[in-house]
Design a protein around this nucleic acid. Structure first.
Lengths: 225, 225
DNA sequence: CCAAAAGTGTTCCGTCTACACCCATGG
DNA sequence: CCATGGGTGTAGACGGAACACTTTTGG
């Protein structure tokens, strides 16, 4: 009884990855130049086509892995982009995903091989097709998420200072926050643990390093920043 | 240079509609029985395939129109569902959308022709494939949206009582709210206008009818419920 | 010794929550 | 006349926002 399906039109389905990173107190996106026509050379997200034997989520994981060599990355779907002429070369429906990585997990060699760069999210260039819209929507979703779920730690090294964490929130939300209020909120969350290690790279005095304890978080879940 | 695309696999892309309605103080979803194998007879969302000459959003509009005869309905994308075996008959990636309609805009005749029914969202039956997950996610998104945007009015007649509006919020969020606090918040929103009409169907005393003034809302946008 | 980042509490104000009684009317 | 839903205000609790000074140390 699969005849029913036969008459319908099949369409190319792709995934596009909005890869967020945090560096020099700025939120960044990893973008490159489109390798193929149409639109060759234009700024573009990294993407790939969905294959028959993989789910869409798996295609996104695979695509991210191709680019970065990283697995088990935090990824969430942004949504489907399906305008008829969004890709001038063919009818392509694309499912966008955003990913959060620690920039230091991604080595520069791979970056250069693929010709991608970290670009400040406040200074996005013109981009191919609807890729800029994808980024804007991804950022909005990420902003909402980061207030109520501990995803910020995906963008930081496993040990981080409170100032780093604060700068990250400021970069994501685009506005400064009060240091004392911020740290007060941190204190209420037992799963953000102070270590006795000290980071001296950011200041002369040095700052305590903290770590996110995932196990302690599970079912403590009183996250709010 | 379209050769690049040729080697990739095309996939059936469908849309599925989660149609919300509000009736007898309950939030409902419009679902029917699947017409085709595999899964014939199972409870199912109403859906359709995306055609080459239409965008995915347009396919959703068209599908909703086929079922209800309604145009310009409030619809938002839920997301793409893309597991390999989500449809046993063929590889199908489906984009889910939720829609909000006033149940009275949908006449029973059409409903019976298509064999669909309003089902209480708290009492969903087992459903075909991942349709239940789609509904759960749609509801969650709708709950978030209804707190900060005036979409509730899409589910009500253009004239409504404050009790109706309150019951709607209670049904959507699954918890009761305080009448006086609720009405206080309404008073702060000038774009919810009291008329001098009275509805006597819900009580002996009668209740004032209100209306949402869309023009007054634009850029007043202090919505919070 | 000084520039630069780290670290630390309190007060105020606005918002949210809890709560109970009278009104109007149809049957 | 009474059962049913409609309509109204206040006080106390809570959470968020504003705000300034001391500490440490590398250069």
């Amino acid at each position: 009884m699969t005849e029913y399906y036969i008459e319908h039109q099949k369409i190319l389905v792709s995934v596009d990855c909005i890869i967020f990173g945090f560096e020099h107190n700025k939120l960044k996106v990893l973008i490159g130049h489109r390798a193929m026509n149409p639109g060759k050379g234009e700024w573009s997200l990294y993407g790939g086509f969905v294959r028959n034997e993989e789910s869409v989520d798996e295609a996104a994981d695979r695509t991210l892995f191709e680019l970065t060599g990283l697995r088990n990355v935090y990824m969430r779907q942004v949504g489907a982009f399906g305008n008829v002429d969004r890709d001038p070369g063919a009818r392509v429906v694309s499912i966008a995903y955003y990913a959060l990585i620690n920039v230091k997990d991604y080595d520069e060699k791979l970056m250069k091989e693929h010709g991608v760069e970290w670009v400040n999210i406040e200074e996005l260039p013109q981009m191919f097709s609807d890729h800029q819209r994808m980024i804007v929507r991804a950022r909005r979703l990420m902003q909402e998420k980061i207030r109520t779920e501990p995803i910020s730690f995906q963008l930081l090294p496993s040990l981080f200072t409170l100032t780093q964490l604060q700068r990250l929130y400021e970069a994501v939300n685009g506005e400064e926050v009060d240091k004392r209020n911020f740290r007060k909120r941190i204190k209420d969350m037992d799963f953000i643990e102070k270590t006795d290690l000290i980071d001296k790279t950011g200041s002369k005095r040095g700052a305590y390093l903290y770590r996110f304890n995932k196990n302690a978080y599970n079912e403590a879940s009183n996250f709010k920043l």
